[in-house]
């Protein structure tokens, strides 16, 4: 090969300020000519090479993001928050699938009669409750111990995850509620119980393990609905005005407890 790059042109290319047409010509030549590759290396600054290498590493490293993380990124969520959420067990596709199946059964049962509607109303608040129970804690988060020893407050991590789980779970339940046979007050009767049970679960988790708190609340909730139906003359007694006011009060009280007990999440309880 007789042609080699003009030294002045090569230097301009190495500095990254050469026009596109000449750059393409030089790049085509560099692919075949070792002598010019060696010559151009002298003109490329160390900072520029390190910068380019860092950009390559960056693209390689962030490439294999999971589906949830990519979706959250597209919705404009900061990457570090998206990564914290991507590690949440109840924000995985498998969890959403299980919730969708449970809701499908509850909705089909609801269309069969009033007992089915009651079953839907019992199950609906338990879905965000269960999601929050497996969002963070010693038995459900494999990095729980490492996270505790890190400076980010466990309470903050718990709140970020709980809020995301609450929003997604309630959105799924809301979609299912549209499919109920009557779009009357019962289609929204699960909302306040859902919020109260979820916040109650978080508040109790500052005293007990999240699993213990969940089991206690599921039992108490189911018992309350069954007793309401058994001893009241009106149907859906646990979802009428007075109980709804009680759920609102439970939600507010839970927020107060959480604010006061936030440091309880900072260390392990038990072994």
């Amino acid at each position: 090969m007789s042609w080699h790059g003009d030294p002045a042109l090569m230097e301009t290319y190495a500095l990254g300020i050469l026009d596109e047409v000449h750059s393409s010509s030089i790049e085509a030549h560099l692919l075949r000519c070792e002598r010019c590759r060696e010559a151009i290396a002298r003109h490329v600054g160390r900072d520029r090479i390190e910068g380019m290498w860092a950009a390559i590493e960056e693209r390689l490293d962030i490439a294999p993001q999971g589906m949830v993380e990519r979706l959250l990124g597209r919705l404009g969520m900061p990457d570090h928050v998206a990564r914290l959420l991507a590690a949440t067990p109840s924000l995985r596709l498998s969890w959403f699938g299980a919730v969708a199946i449970a809701l499908a059964f509850a909705t089909v049962a609801a269309r069969a009669g009033s007992v089915g509607v009651l079953q839907f109303l019992v199950v609906a608040p338990l879905i965000p409750l269960a999601g929050i129970a497996v969002a963070y804690g010693p038995r459900v988060d494999p990095t729980y111990e490492v996270g505790l020893a890190a400076p980010m407050r466990s309470f903050r991590l718990l709140m970020i995850r709980a809020l995301a789980v609450l929003i997604t779970s309630m959105a799924l339940v809301g979609i299912a509620a549209i499919a109920l046979p009557h779009l009357d007050w019962t289609a929204a009767a699960w909302l306040l119980p859902s919020i109260a049970l979820s916040l109650g679960n978080l508040a109790l988790s500052s005293y007990w393990s999240p699993q213990r708190a969940t089991v206690g609340l599921v039992a108490a909730w189911t018992l309350a609905v069954v007793l309401g139906e058994r001893f009241s003359s009106v149907p859906y007694a646990a979802f009428r005005a007075a109980p709804q006011a009680a759920f609102a009060m439970i939600a507010v009280a839970s927020i107060v407890v959480l604010a006061r007990r936030r440091e309880a999440f900072d260390t392990r309880r038990g072994r």
Binding site: D61, R83, T143, V146, P151, M152, L157
Partner: peptide
Amino acid sequence: VDYVAILKE
């Protein structure tokens, strides 16, 4: 490791 780095502020 990036996830833990986020936990480390």
